[in-house]
Computed example of a mutant assay.
Amino acid sequence: MKQLLVFVLFAAMFCWLMFSPIYKHVLVIRQALLQQETDYLLEIGASGKYGYIDGAMVAESRNRLGQYGFNAASLNYEIATTTGAEGDNAQAPVTRGVGIRLSITYPYENLLNIDRLIGIQPPSANARISGRGMKMSEYVP
């Protein structure tokens, strides 16, 4: 009976050791992609040509991230400015020197449930990974 118990515990530990790095790698790649997309949108949106990040840019971003396996409906975009002005209004772009903040969040989607095998609690169901950044607008009317 002890040998069976040791086998079951060893099998669980072996599974965790084999598959946990893969899931953690997926998590790191997802977070990196979110940060890369955030940096890209801020670079484009804060450029001298735009001064905003509008719905069309967000829709294109959702499509790009969807190509990497993200569920586009689960992506959450938050756009703000340092002055409180709308950072997503194409009719009123923010002027030079005003910071545009962007945050893209995405749920963990049970990626770390395998950690339960060794007694580590995974993140809660409403926890999200994110990419965040701020860039000063370069738009001059």
Rank of each mutant, 00 (worst) to 15 (best):
G66F: 08
A127F: 11
S130M: 02
I129G: 05
Y23W: 14
R128S: 08
S124T: 11
T105K: 11
E37R: 13
N76T: 15
Q121K: 08
L5K: 09
Y52D: 04
S61W: 09
S74Y: 13
M57Y: 09
G51W: 01
I129Q: 05
Q91G: 07
S47H: 10
M134A: 07
V140N: 12
V8W: 12
D115F: 03
G119I: 02
V28N: 13
G45F: 08
S137Q: 05
Y23L: 09
N89G: 02
K24G: 00
Q31K: 15
L112V: 03
S124Y: 04
R101P: 00
D88T: 04
Y68C: 05
G45P: 09
R30T: 00
I104W: 05
S20V: 07
G48T: 05
R62V: 01
L5E: 09
R101H: 12
S47M: 07
A56M: 09
F10R: 00
G51T: 01
L33V: 00
T81K: 06
Y40W: 07
P21C: 02
L33I: 00
S20W: 02
L41S: 07
A80M: 08
R116C: 05
V26L: 15
K49M: 12
S20D: 07
E86P: 02
P21W: 07
Q36D: 14
R64S: 11
W16V: 11
L5I: 12
K24M: 11
I22F: 15
F10H: 01
N113D: 15
R128V: 10
L33F: 07
E43H: 11
E86D: 15
M136S: 15
R96V: 07
N113P: 02
L34M: 01
V28L: 13
Y23T: 06
L41F: 10
T83M: 03
I29H: 10
E78K: 13
D88A: 13
P107S: 07
I100T: 02
T95C: 04
E37H: 08
F14Q: 03
Q35L: 10
W16M: 10
F7A: 14
Y68E: 11
G133C: 06
I22W: 15
L41C: 08
V58M: 10
G51H: 03
G133L: 06
V98E: 06
A11Q: 08
P141A: 06
F70P: 09
T81F: 10
E138P: 09
Q31P: 04
G97M: 01
I120C: 02
T95N: 11
L34H: 02
I118Q: 00
V28A: 15
A56P: 02
P93I: 00
N89K: 09
G69N: 02
N63S: 13
F19Q: 02
I79A: 05
Y68Q: 09
G133H: 08
C15P: 07
R64L: 11
I44L: 11
L34G: 00
F10N: 04
V140F: 13
A59F: 12
I104L: 08
S130K: 04
L4Q: 12
A46C: 10
I129S: 06
M57L: 14
N113G: 00
M18G: 03
A92L: 07
Y106H: 03
A90T: 05
L5W: 08
A92P: 00
P122R: 00
R62N: 05
V28R: 12
G45V: 06
A11L: 14
A11K: 03
L41V: 06
R30P: 00
G87T: 03
Y52W: 13
Y106C: 03
N89L: 12
I129C: 07
